[in-house]
């Protein structure tokens, strides 16, 4: 089974981002970059499915030329090869249409993507890709942990593939739902699907020899003019100091008249 996985290079979630003085962008100078954590979960899921069913895991990143490092990390985790579309910041729609081109060429049976990237939290690319391809989709894929040993848990995929179908448990408001999808299909991963493995040193050394195909974005013939425009970035308002109330009556009054929550 061939599985395509996407990996986006995002700013390190451990560090505080700074807004540029004009408020139109984020300061990337001196920032640390890491693979989108949801995408690491996608890579892990693909590797577990590969272990169970064989086949190939192909990693795609669309973005900055330095994103080869994020692809290389996925290869070090165990993926087979990479495709790097070198581009500047794109909106989710452009990403989905570029991915569609790659899917048409690679013909995978499954595309696994992070549900969203931790930088812009758009949560759109997977759904848009499914729409453009006309494929079934299961977003927010999760897993119910049984009483397996830790060692078993670390190997069992959450997505079950059998008879040309994928069974996916997904997180929804207030619980879980199970979907059956006909392959080929799109799955986007939520936090509880798995714990991604760490790239091992032997894996890192092997990854050096795995191919990464670099493709300039222009070669796809896709119009990448943004449909989404960043109007302004702003810090969330600083937390204000609290006040002490004399008694319950005053508290209830404030909740009613000032906070307007009751």
């Amino acid at each position: 089974m061939k599985i395509l996985v996407t990996v986006k290079r995002v700013t390190d979630y451990e560090r505080k981002v700074k807004i540029s003085p004009d408020g139109l962008s984020l300061v990337t100078e001196g920032m640390n970059f890491v693979p989108n954590p949801f995408d690491e979960i996608a890579v892990e899921e693909a590797l577990r499915l590969q272990k169970a069913h064989g086949g190939e895991v192909v990693v795609i990143s669309i973005g900055h030329k330095d994103a080869s490092k994020e692809i290389r990390q996925a290869l070090a985790m165990g993926a087979d090869r990479g495709i790097h579309v070198i581009a500047e910041e794109l909106d989710p729609d452009a990403v989905a249409r570029l991915l569609m081109k790659i899917v048409e060429e690679e013909k995978p049976e499954l595309v696994i993507m992070g549900k969203q990237a931790t930088d812009d939290d758009a949560n759109q690319a997977g759904q848009l890709l499914a729409g453009y391809l006309g494929w079934p989709q299961a977003t927010f894929a999760s897993k119910v942990e049984g009483l397996d040993s830790e060692a078993e848990k670390a190997q069992t995929p959450g997505v079950v593939i059998a008879g040309g179908e994928a069974t996916v448990i997904r997180e929804i408001d207030g619980g879980l739902e199970t979907l059956k999808l006909k392959l080929p299909a799109i799955v986007t991963t939520d936090l509880r699907l798995n714990h991604p493995r760490f790239a091992s040193l032997p894996g890192i050394m092997k990854a050096k020899k795995k191919p990464i195909k670099e493709v300039p974005v222009a070669s796809f013939g896709v119009d990448i003019t943004p449909k989404v425009r960043n109007v302004k970035y702003a810090e969330p308002p600083a937390r204000k100091a609290g006040v002490k109330v004399a008694d319950v009556a005053e508290l209830v009054n404030k909740l009613k008249t000032e906070a307007k929550v009751i």
Binding site: V34, Q73, F198, S200, L201, I204, M205
Partner: peptide, 18 residues
């Protein structure tokens, strides 16, 4: 000879996260 900046960064990154 088998190492470069990238292998080292990836190894450090794995160790840090673990």
């Amino acid at each position: 000879a088998d190492h470069n900046q990238e292998t080292i960064e990836l190894y450090l990154a794995s160790c840090r996260r673990l």
